[in-house]
């Protein structure tokens, strides 16, 4: 079953045509990797999925994006509800300058959960799921800004998990991290795919092969090829995909 279906998506910012005729199906509870050179539209694409582009001036789109069969750009859709279902982890860890606890509790408070026991419990669960609990359990009231980059990124993942989304978008979540932190995040992605549908943008092709089941190759705003990750890397159907993954450009 598909969690997300995108049909003929075109995105423009003012006169710049960033995404062209994007068609993709994202199956439920799998990891889908989006690869491609810088500026190919991968980030723009995932930011379209939780409507983060809405606030950028000049954003226009045509085509359809369905989440569980519902058109997410339908005027009746509440963006707040959509973002509750489609969480996002950014390229640079961006915890709030608040305590570790408050960072994880933030989304719940915003969504009107005020029962302290519920919040307490879910903060702990989320930090455990994000493999961060053991490192921070004794300093939950300390500022999140004091954590290392890798810990901050796992905190951002915990913060996202805490609102119990269906989909987690990850925009190059490891590009600002050292190799050890990267491994931890990748292990985490493996664990999370049982409960969440994950779409990860990555520059790193090894990472795509390590974490994802499906991969789509973006080039100049188009999807050149989508396939099972293994197939895409071993037997690319398109010459451009082959050139990219063998390092001839990009």
């Amino acid at each position: 079953m598909n969690r997300i279906e995108v049909e003929d998506l075109n995105v423009c910012f003012d006169d710049a045509h960033i995404l062209k005729d994007i068609n993709i199906k994202i199956p439920k509870n799998t990891v889908t990797a989006l690869i491609g050179p810088s500026g190919c539209g991968k980030s723009t694409f995932i930011r379209t999925l939780n409507r983060m582009n809405d606030v950028i001036s000049g954003f226009k789109h045509t085509g359809m994006i369905y989440l569980d069969g519902e058109d997410i750009y339908d005027p009746k859709i509440d963006v707040v509800d959509l973002r509750k279902k489609v969480g996002m982890v950014f390229q640079k860890p961006n915890p709030f300058p608040k305590s570790i606890f408050d960072n994880v509790a933030y989304g719940m408070k915003v969504h009107g959960i005020s029962d302290k026991d519920v919040i307490q419990e879910r903060v702990e669960e989320s930090l455990k799921s994000a493999a961060l609990w053991d490192e921070v359990k004794d300093k939950l009231d300390k500022s999140a800004m004091g954590l290392s980059g890798g810990q901050q990124q796992r905190l951002c993942i915990a913060r996202t998990i805490a609102i119990e989304p269906e989909v987690i978008l990850m925009d190059e979540p490891c590009s600002a991290l050292d190799p050890i932190s990267t491994t931890k995040i990748e292990d985490l992605i493996h664990k999370l795919k049982d409960d969440f549908t994950i779409i990860i943008v990555t520059h790193n092709m090894q990472q795509a092969t390590r974490v994802s089941k499906y991969t789509s190759f973006f080039l100049h705003g188009e999807i050149v090829e989508s396939n099972l990750t293994e197939r895409l890397f071993l037997e690319p159907e398109d010459k451009r995909t082959e050139d990219y993954i063998t390092g001839r450009f990009g």
Partner: peptide
Amino acid sequence: PRSYREGSLALGAT
């Protein structure tokens, strides 16, 4: 930083 605002909006805050 803009990243704080984006982080908050992405969590469904108005």
